[in-house]
């Protein structure tokens, strides 16, 4: 076992996901298997290899600083589960 239920519970918390005990166990087993599989990479010698910043061989793709029309507010809000006065409405925020 490379990872434990506690690790998975922590990742779930950070991702705002809620798992039952049995789900936790299932996922822990599955994630462990995936990590085990990828572990083969740890056997490579990468001492002289720069970390990959991007998989494409492109650099400096930029755009000119020009303001373009935005979405209409109606369209921007059209997928919002809840809205009010032109705002996106979200549940209460816990803040101490």
């Amino acid at each position: 076992m490379k990872i434990t239920c506690k690790d998975v519970a922590n990742v779930a918390l950070l991702s705002r996901l809620e798992f039952s005990e049995s789900e936790l166990e299932t996922f822990t087993g599955q994630m462990d298997a995936i990590l085990e599989y990828a572990d083969v990479l740890n056997k490579l010698n990468v001492d002289n290899v720069q970390p990959t910043a991007h998989v494409l061989p492109l650099r400096n793709v930029m755009r000119a600083d020009e303001a373009k029309p935005s979405l209409s507010r109606e369209l921007a809000l059209s997928n919002a589960p809840e809205q009010e006065d032109g705002y996106f409405k979200v549940p209460k925020i816990m803040e101490g």
Partner: peptide, 15 residues
């Protein structure tokens, strides 16, 4: 390309 203008009406500079 959305405008950065301060004080625009809510959710009008979004894409």
């Amino acid at each position: 390309g959305c405008s950065t203008k301060f004080g625009s009406e809510q959710n009008t500079n979004v894409c």
